[in-house]
């Protein structure tokens, strides 16, 4: 039982990170139906900004996170304006290829600038304390990651549900043409979506940096693809789906490694995804909509 609770906590903190990245994926997808493959790399850039503000500017962790979120929201908007906007009315697959190009560019430009070697977060950035509660080890890092992920998700929910901007975002994702007719600026809404999605990725990046102490230029690929899978698992385009999908993915991976065979962890994760897609093609939270003629 102790072991199970321990594994559950392990899974939750891993899942919180996946969920944060998945949120950005899902928001962008929801609004312009683009699988933004560069999202994981935006997370990487966020992690680097966090790293430099912690180690060079000596700022504290929350300030570093805010810097990273700001920098990445600008980066996200720029990427959208330069690379995706010209393709908004061409095929989605063309945009997908561009996203792959942007992803490669971010990875290898960072690698070129900073070298492929990993950078280590300073110890002082986040002093670790381990708490031992009835044989289950919980560190303040776990708590930090889970709590800040939940807070960010709540803020996001507030923005989407309660504010005018959120309303505009929902409107554009529901029906772009109708939204235009209602006087909503699609360009602006898309930009805001990219800004928010990218800043969430940046937050996740700083969290990964703090949680695992290191950053490197190719760190975004694996969590990026996993988070994408998580978003699809929950039902892509749906914010609650991304959250639940992220946590599920984290717990699933942890449980497979913990109780099954760690060598097959990734295969099982993808296997469950495919199974869910086959049973319920729109993901756990997706609504089935028939094709219209």
């Amino acid at each position: 039982m102790q072991e199970f609770i321990q594994q559950l906590i392990n899974g939750l903190s891993l899942g919180a990170i996946y969920a944060l990245i998945a949120l950005g994926y899902t928001m962008v997808y929801g609004i312009i139906k683009l699988i933004n493959f560069a999202h994981g790399d935006i997370m990487m850039v966020g992690a680097y900004v966090g790293f430099f503000s912690l180690s060079v500017l000596d700022s504290n962790i929350l300030v570093a996170m805010i810097y990273a979120m700001l920098a990445c929201s600008i980066l996200g908007v720029l990427i959208e304006k330069i690379a995706y906007k010209p393709l908004r009315y061409s095929t989605r697959i063309a945009a997908l290829i561009t996203a792959i190009g942007v992803s490669l560019f971010l990875e290898y430009f960072t690698l070129f600038l900073l070298g492929p070697a990993q950078r280590v977060f300073p110890d002082t950035a986040f002093p670790v304390n381990n708490y031992n509660i009835i044989g289950v080890s919980v560190s303040n890092k776990d708590i930090f990651v889970i709590v800040s992920a939940v807070i960010l998700m709540l803020i996001l929910q507030y923005i989407i549900r309660m504010t005018k901007t959120g309303k505009a975002m929902r409107a554009v994702s529901e029906d772009k043409d109708a939204a235009v007719l209602m006087g909503i600026s699609v360009d602006k809404t898309v930009s805001i979506t990219f800004a928010i999605g990218s800043s969430l990725a940046a937050a996740a990046g700083v969290m990964i940096g703090v949680y695992y102490n290191t950053v490197n230029p190719l760190m975004g690929i694996v969590p990026g693809i996993k988070a994408f899978v998580a978003a699809v698992l929950g039902g892509i385009g749906l914010v609650p789906g991304a959250m639940v999908g992220g946590f599920l993915m984290g717990i699933l991976e942890t449980m497979v490694s913990g109780y099954g065979n760690s060598l097959y962890r990734d295969a099982v994760a993808y296997g469950v995804l495919i199974l869910i897609l086959i049973i319920k093609p729109t993901g756990l939270f997706g609504k089935n909509t028939g094709d219209k003629v």
Binding site: E3, Q6, Q7, N10, G11, L14, I208, Y211, Y212, T214, L218, M219, I221, V222, E253, T254, M255, V256, S257, G258, Y259, S262, L263, D266
Partner: peptide, 20 residues
């Protein structure tokens, strides 16, 4: 006998198992 792959950063699941 357990395994991880390149770029993994989370090992706690397997480590919890090893601990026991």
């Amino acid at each position: 006998e357990e395994g991880f792959v390149k770029d993994d950063r989370d090992f706690k699941a397997v480590l919890t198992k090893i601990k026991n």
